[in-house]
Simulated scan of single mutants.
Amino acid sequence: MAAAAAVPALCLAEAAAVTTVLAPRPTSLRTFSSRSCVASIRRSALKCHPSRPLTGGAGGGPPPPPAVFHGECFVVGDNIDTDQIIPAEHLTLVPSKPDEYRKLGSFAFVGLPTAAYPTPFVAPGEEKTHYAVVIGGANFGCGSSREHAPVALGAAGARAVVAEGYARIFFRNSVATGEVYPLELADTGAWKECKTGDVVTVELDNCVMINHTSGKQYKLKPIGDAGPVIEAGGIFAYARKTGMIASKSA
């Protein structure tokens, strides 16, 4: 939702400066710094939606406990770039418009080659995916710095990406928009061992991903202080929540 005229918001170019410290690093913890990062304030065209329940994908049964994602996974390999996540021809869609936000989600991962990925992330004619978690290899989100990439995944209904490593800009945009949790694996090989459609549970508090289909578990690196920013719904919502900028009701 666009910010009211009386309450300007950070643009993502400026939010990048705030979230630079959150980019993937060799250490297992990232720190969020709030110092003077909102000095220059403008309105953004991109949508940073309110915080959603930490669930997704296949339904049925009682909801998982907090800080848990459960459902089927969608598996991709190394070097998945932003053009494969959301091709350039769909970047005219404006995420702050609900209809276009949903349409953007329907195009998530349409740039993947069908020969290598015969199962679509979003079924034809649908706007939402059946997959709660995306599992990837190294350098996930490389390529152009389009904020629409994590937005498209979140709009489709994915709640987390679990990868061996991230392009810095994709990680930063994921945190800034609050659309998906970009979680890093502590070890390699999960994308080769997991299959699309496997049922997985991601436990943020325990830093583990459990593949219930294969019975294997995978250790995750702690996301650190990036977690509260994503949980709040992105950098704008977090800035209002912590008093860095005025709330919309002020």
Rank of each mutant, 00 (worst) to 15 (best):
A16Q: 08
Y218K: 04
G105H: 07
A9K: 00
H212I: 13
A190C: 11
S214F: 12
T82F: 12
D78W: 01
S36I: 09
H130G: 15
D205K: 14
R102H: 10
A190W: 01
L29F: 12
M1A: 10
G141L: 12
C48M: 05
K128I: 07
I223S: 02
L10C: 03
D205M: 07
D187K: 08
D187Y: 01
I85Q: 02
S51R: 05
V68R: 14
T196P: 13
A138W: 12
N206S: 15
V161C: 08
K219F: 11
E179S: 15
T114E: 15
A163Q: 09
I86T: 06
E231Y: 08
I169C: 09
A123W: 05
F236Y: 04
P87I: 02
E72A: 15
P113M: 13
G234H: 00
G71K: 15
V7L: 05
H130S: 15
A3I: 08
T129M: 13
T119L: 14
D205Q: 08
P87Y: 00
Q84F: 11
K128C: 11
I210D: 11
W191S: 02
T19G: 07
Y218Q: 02
E126N: 14
C207D: 06
T119M: 14
A237P: 01
W191V: 00
A167T: 09
P118E: 14
A239E: 02
A167C: 12
G157L: 04
T129D: 13
A67H: 14
P222C: 04
F107R: 01
R42K: 11
P95W: 06
I235W: 00
P182G: 08
S174V: 10
E126I: 10
V161F: 04
A138V: 10
S106E: 05
A155H: 10
P24K: 00
A23C: 06
G56N: 11
F69C: 07
S36Q: 11
N206L: 13
K128Q: 15
I135C: 13
S145G: 10
A167I: 02
P118Y: 15
H148I: 03
G77N: 11
L91I: 09
F170H: 05
T119P: 03
E14F: 03
C194K: 08
D198E: 14
E164H: 00
Q84I: 10
P26D: 06
V162Q: 02
F171Q: 00
G125H: 10
Y101T: 03
E100H: 06
H90I: 07
F107C: 03
E14A: 09
H212C: 10
I230E: 01
E179V: 06
P26G: 07
F140C: 01
I245D: 01
N206E: 14
V75G: 08
A239I: 00
M244G: 03
P64H: 14
T213R: 05
F107T: 01
